[in-house]
């Protein structure tokens, strides 16, 4: 078990100031650790990895890592990533987005990236809220919960990221919480190994902007909530039907093979060149 933390330190930028800017207990840091371990486990070099991040607290984690890092605009990280991957398919492109980032302002890019099967791993750090701007509702804020812009409770329905990704045609869709970090490591590793668009949703607590207003006394209570309510798919299947709805399923929801867009492009080029010669 040992040497986990030293390993992470090895991948951090040594000329950045630590501790990082995130709040105490913010789950985004755990995702960062998980991502670093996964990259390490696959033996990827720092040079071949490009972390493309959106805007939000989630987007701020990229700058701390010693990869090629691109901090983009709010909601548009996937568009930058698409250009990078098409321009150089040899790069391992990983996109880090918040829930507001990926699904509110960036919802259109999200479904299209999934549909076109561009070879990037999309990590959505879902804390059910806009953390960075001070706790306004996002498209994943659960119905009835309180935020700065839904002071009387969220009236709108929220997105289920997994269902949305499935419907948009993603060939790999997985979810974990930051408490279930071994699972998180595993699904990120699998995502990074696969061609095409891979979606990993990480449920991560934001006590500062969400938990406090929604009956969680401390950030630890939010982790305890994950422990109680998140259930791996196989365990969920064993529960009586009536009890399933209240639980949050975690695990791998879709895993299929398909050519990525950049692979298809390579095939197109060789077809055209054969035709020309």
């Amino acid at each position: 078990m040992a040497e986990v933390t030293q390993l992470i330190h090895h991948y951090l930028r040594h000329n950045k100031k630590f501790p990082h800017v995130l709040c105490p207990g913010c789950g985004h840091g755990i995702v960062l650790g998980s991502l670093v371990r996964s990259i390490h486990q696959l033996g990827l070099t720092k040079d071949e990895v490009v972390l493309v991040a959106g805007i939000g607290c989630s987007g701020r984690i990229a700058v701390y890592t010693d990869f090629n890092t691109v901090h983009t605009t709010h909601g548009r990280a996937l568009t930058f990533a698409t250009g990078i991957k098409m321009a150089n398919p040899g790069l391992k492109v990983i996109v880090i987005m918040g829930d507001g980032d990926a699904l509110s302002i960036g919802g259109n890019h999200f479904i299209h990236a999934a549909r076109r099967n561009i070879g990037v791993t999309a990590l959505i750090l879902n804390n059910n809220i806009y953390g960075m701007t001070g706790g306004q509702s996002s498209s994943t804020t659960p119905q009835d919960s309180v935020s700065m812009t839904t002071p009387f409770g969220q009236m709108e329905k929220s997105f289920d990221i997994v269902e949305l990704a499935k419907a948009a045609g993603a060939h790999y869709v997985a979810r974990s919480t930051v408490l279930h970090v071994k699972l998180l490591d595993r699904i990120i590793v699998t995502a990074l190994e696969r061609p095409g668009f891979n979606l990993v949703e990480a449920l991560t607590p934001c006590h500062t902007q969400f938990g406090r207003k929604n009956k969680f006394k401390t950030v630890v209570d939010m982790y305890k909530w994950y422990k109680k309510n998140a259930l791996p798919l196989d365990a969920l299947a064993k529960l009586p039907e009536a009890q399933r709805n209240a639980r949050v399923p975690i695990g791998i929801f879709v895993q299929e093979e398909a050519h990525s867009l950049e692979d298809r492009y390579v095939m197109l080029r060789s077809r055209l060149q054969e035709g020309a010669s």
Partner: peptide
């Protein structure tokens, strides 16, 4: 966005 990515 894609053009910026490609240029980078």
């Amino acid at each position: 966005g894609a053009v910026i990515g490609a240029s980078l």
